[in-house]
Computed example of a mutant assay.
Amino acid sequence: MSLLFSKSNTLRKSVKITEEEFLQLRDFVYDKSGIYIDEKRKYLFESRFSRRLGQLGLTSFTDYIKFLRVDRGQELKQLFELVTTNETSFCRDTKQLESFRDNLLKEVLDRQRKTGRLELNIWSAGCSSGEEPYTLVFLLLETLKAEIARWKISITAVDLSEEMISKARTGIYTEYAFKTTPDTIRKRYFKEVEGGWELDPRIRKLVNFLPMNLNDALAVKRVPRSHIIFCRNVIIYFDDAMKRKVVQAFYDNLLPGGYLLVGHSESLHKVSQSFRPVHNAGAIAYKKEE
């Protein structure tokens, strides 16, 4: 999941950003990604972007904004890396995951069995370096056990950061990624290698990772229709208009009876009335009525 500006670069003297430059750069970021940067974070633009300006041989944010506007897309990737920093781990928010496993997942699986269609599509939106979608695979393996061989399971995991998507595909993680993870999970699905712990390739094959901007309506429409969508700790970085746009896209993507799960500190109360809130011990989910 993406957090904005959780660390700043203290190794280089910051290039000062004027109020006008901040507004122009903020609006550019919003237009391209839907991410809204509050004015209180202006000083973080200076600290985070100063090194990049130095790498490009630029001495002002005005020059950088001009560069962005004539660039053909390569610098946009760098921009996305600069405005998002990823804070995640395996099995994060245990109570929510346990509630999902014991209630919603069980319901969806039972419904699929009754229809005779042993298939399940899950979309992890804002997947960061892969810990969330891989955690969902662990839950499925432990829930379905040997029965999983009979199921057609598709997990689509997307993130704005191509760097994070690349890391997720590699499947090698440091100790930090396991800070919320039971030792049994690490022993069962990982092996120790140089540089960290490598995820079992059989697990990695179950997740399709794609770089994606949730502000790109055409890209979002290409995601397979989902039974379950996870978008945790992402929409809090959008303004109201972008929240409504993204949540509506999730609603359109979900199959009837499907569920959207957001972060435990997030709510759709003022964003959308299309979903029915479903309360279970430890979590709230949002259901698209059948």
Results as ranks from 00 to 15, higher is better:
171 G>H: 01
175 E>D: 14
142 E>W: 05
163 E>A: 12
146 A>P: 14
175 E>N: 14
157 A>H: 01
142 E>T: 04
177 A>F: 04
144 L>W: 08
158 V>C: 12
150 R>C: 03
177 A>N: 04
177 A>W: 03
176 Y>C: 03
142 E>G: 03
175 E>Q: 14
163 E>S: 11
165 I>Q: 00
186 R>L: 12
177 A>E: 05
185 I>Q: 02
166 S>E: 12
176 Y>V: 15
141 L>Y: 06
195 G>E: 10
190 F>L: 11
172 I>S: 06
196 G>V: 10
174 T>Y: 04
165 I>P: 00
177 A>C: 07
152 K>R: 14
179 K>H: 13
192 E>R: 13
157 A>R: 01
143 T>I: 06
175 E>P: 02
161 S>A: 06
165 I>T: 08
157 A>D: 02
166 S>P: 00
174 T>S: 15
189 Y>V: 06
193 V>G: 05
161 S>F: 01
171 G>K: 00
173 Y>P: 02
157 A>I: 06
168 A>I: 11
156 T>W: 08
150 R>K: 15
173 Y>R: 10
193 V>D: 10
161 S>T: 04
173 Y>N: 08
175 E>I: 10
191 K>R: 15
165 I>F: 08
160 L>F: 04
161 S>K: 00
143 T>R: 11
170 T>P: 00
164 M>C: 09
163 E>L: 10
168 A>E: 04
195 G>R: 09
195 G>T: 14
185 I>T: 05
149 A>F: 08
164 M>D: 03
195 G>A: 12
187 K>F: 01
188 R>Q: 13
159 D>M: 10
150 R>T: 09
155 I>N: 00
191 K>Q: 14
163 E>D: 15
172 I>W: 05
189 Y>P: 02
156 T>K: 01
143 T>E: 12
148 I>K: 10
145 K>S: 09
175 E>K: 13
191 K>W: 06
184 T>H: 13
170 T>N: 10
159 D>L: 06
192 E>G: 05
187 K>E: 14
181 T>E: 01
176 Y>N: 08
179 K>F: 07
190 F>V: 07
181 T>C: 15
162 E>A: 10
177 A>Y: 05
163 E>R: 13
193 V>H: 04
184 T>F: 15
167 K>N: 08
173 Y>T: 06
184 T>Q: 09
180 T>V: 01
160 L>C: 07
161 S>G: 07
169 R>T: 09
188 R>C: 11
183 D>G: 04
169 R>C: 13
174 T>R: 15
169 R>F: 11
171 G>D: 07
174 T>K: 12
149 A>D: 14
156 T>S: 09
153 I>E: 05
146 A>S: 15
155 I>Q: 02
164 M>W: 00
169 R>V: 08
146 A>T: 13
194 E>F: 10
155 I>R: 01
172 I>R: 08
166 S>H: 15
173 Y>Q: 10
171 G>S: 10
142 E>Q: 09
166 S>A: 14
141 L>Q: 11
172 I>Y: 09
174 T>P: 01
183 D>L: 15
189 Y>L: 11
150 R>S: 12
142 E>K: 07
171 G>T: 05
182 P>D: 08
171 G>A: 12
145 K>F: 06
